[in-house]
Write a protein that binds this DNA or RNA. Structure first.
Lengths: 323, 323
DNA sequence: CGGCATCATTGGATCGATCAAGTTGCGGAT
DNA sequence: ATCCGCAACTTGATCGATCCAATGATGCCG
């Protein structure tokens, strides 16, 4: 198992180092015959490019970074994990590898960017959990670091590429499903106003109700996410309510407990929903991850479109026993 | 934002490159006064070591790799995700970064090792999901690649360091808890024989029953993991059964459905257990991850103990409504 | 006061790839 | 016959760190 470098291959194939490099990076400039000879040498020796050496010369590492959330391992934490799985697969296919990092808050995360960029020459980032006034995107944009966000830039202009799931459409479809089943008094159990995602999910429900000519007064309840808080809040709905659309599976679980017999639909289609037969809105996470990676590689390989791209993916309703 | 290299720092501090390198890597050989001057220059310039350059010279990357499971996003998939979170935290603390990869099977995974080692100079691996006749450990050992497994080497001798959770102790504690509550006819709902983990979990239950002088004949049922399969299998228990210890939360969920009113205890303390109030055995995943990282850094920094280390961590019982 | 060991620091070579500039060979136009 | 252009390939320099051998400074002793 001697060390196999580009020089070893060159010697074996009877050419210079540069020609081997050309075969690898710009095959079209090498004569077909020579190219094959070099390729044969590469495979017979089991040669692989040393990324560190390449990186030092080119300044590119073929590495992208994603944050993995530290705590928050509740019911909903798994959503980001599923996204991460999809991203790792997509990155591998595109010839990139994924590096993980954790960060306590936005400032900490920005400090980590700095470290990853200077120490490891990271090529790009995929950000999750975007929110109002997010300082991360502007920091990266100011330094011309390629990045894509999973989640739209709430409140900010669309200056970068992003992929998001159409939350409105999700609750809209869920509400329509309930309307079709004959429900008229349908409540919405969501989060306090201010989170873009939560507000969008409420909007979809309201739109479906209004379109059906129904009054929504007193049918919307807001509470911090959680099973217990959801159960408590669900008690505040009017007695004649027959169905509830929820902003998360946690809340839906609470609603199920507080309002037995009523129709309930959750959001995110987590393992819990699957396990207990909860109807839920499912986000196409694997596809979202693949799209993010695709947009990012476009940026990285320089064939980026002149303008940034925004993608809104439709979620789907997974109908189970609870609705 | 000019590029800051070791030469920039050297110039600013009025010393040579090598002295700066010494301050970073072997501070004790530099005179205190010089050391401080160099350190001041480093911070004022915001200098950070270029890992690619360091790596090329030293052959070490300060990178470790962990496999992320592709599919299997059921209830139990989250266990490995939680381990991954813990590992990322621990690695960051130890000055390492985590790189992800996926693999379809053991052979594919070994091919990935080869690629990661030659292309990225990975320093070490943390393996999960060890099993009987695992070819990965011997491949790595044959090449002197540092690695630690989360999961013992089932059936093979303890030639490498590993961390595992004491599965026997988990079901033993669960069963004792039920015995204390007055139950006498306690069943075990587990997986088919052959998986080390599953067999160990059955052993713990059997040991507690035998110690209490109880007969276990006909009280053990084996089935492939899943909620539905668990529910179906739970129907095969004798009618006088009052409690069930399960090898997973999925099975426990099935048991709860098939045997309403009976006491049920699951395993892994997943989000589902938390959400529906299922009593479950909880694995100390964050601690396991930290221990793995600790063992691995010992190997990497050359201060490895002469013999390999094995750690068996005790799980804990999280008592909720179902038992 | 010269000799010599010890400590602190320096300068050149090196890791393995790519970049930039140069060389060779060959056909076609002048 | 000479020159030009182009394709195909080669050579030396370079990225930013660390290794290694050598140098200068300092102190101690006979």
């Amino acid at each position: 198992m001697e060390k196999v470098t580009i020089a070893t291959v060159a010697e074996r194939a009877g050419v210079s180092r540069q020609t081997v490099s050309n075969v690898i990076n710009t095959p079209e400039v090498v004569r077909a015959e020579t190219r094959e000879r070099v390729r044969a040498a590469i495979t017979s020796l089991g040669y692989r490019v040393n990324q560190a050496a390449r990186q030092m010369r080119t300044g590119r590492s073929r590495l992208i970074a994603v944050r993995i959330e530290s705590g928050s391992d509740g019911i909903n934490g798994s959503v980001l994990d599923r996204f991460l799985h999809g991203l790792t697969d997509a990155a591998t296919l595109a010839g990139y590898r994924v590096m993980l990092y954790t960060a306590a808050d936005d400032a900490d995360e920005i400090a980590t960017y700095d470290d990853l960029l200077t120490a490891h020459d990271l090529d790009g980032f995929v950000l999750t959990s975007t929110h109002h006034g997010d300082p991360r995107t502007s920091w990266l944009a100011a330094r011309d670091v390629p990045f894509v966000t999973f989640g739209r830039p709430w409140g900010a202009p669309d200056t970068h590429s992003w992929v998001d799931v159409d939350n409105d459409a999700g609750t809209l479809a869920a509400t329509k499903h309930l309307l079709k089943a004959g429900h008229r008094r349908i409540g919405f159990l969501g989060w306090p106003r201010g989170s873009g995602v939560g507000d969008a999910r409420r909007t979809g429900w309201a739109a479906a109700m209004t379109a059906a000519g129904l009054d929504v007064t007193g049918l919307s309840v807001a509470v911090i996410d959680g099973v217990d808080s959801g159960a408590e809040a669900a008690g505040r709905f009017p007695d004649d309510l027959t169905a509830v659309v929820c902003a998360s599976d946690s809340l839906a679980l609470g609603a199920l407990r507080a309002l037995p017999g009523r129709a309930v639909i959750g959001f995110d289609d987590t393992a819990v929903a699957h396990a207990i037969g909860l109807t839920s809105v499912s986000q196409p996470l694997a596809e979202a991850a693949a799209r993010c990676m695709h947009l990012l590689t476009e940026l990285l390989d320089g064939r980026a479109p002149a303008t940034s791209t925004q993608l809104l993916l439709p979620p789907s309703l997974v109908v189970r026993q609870t609705a």
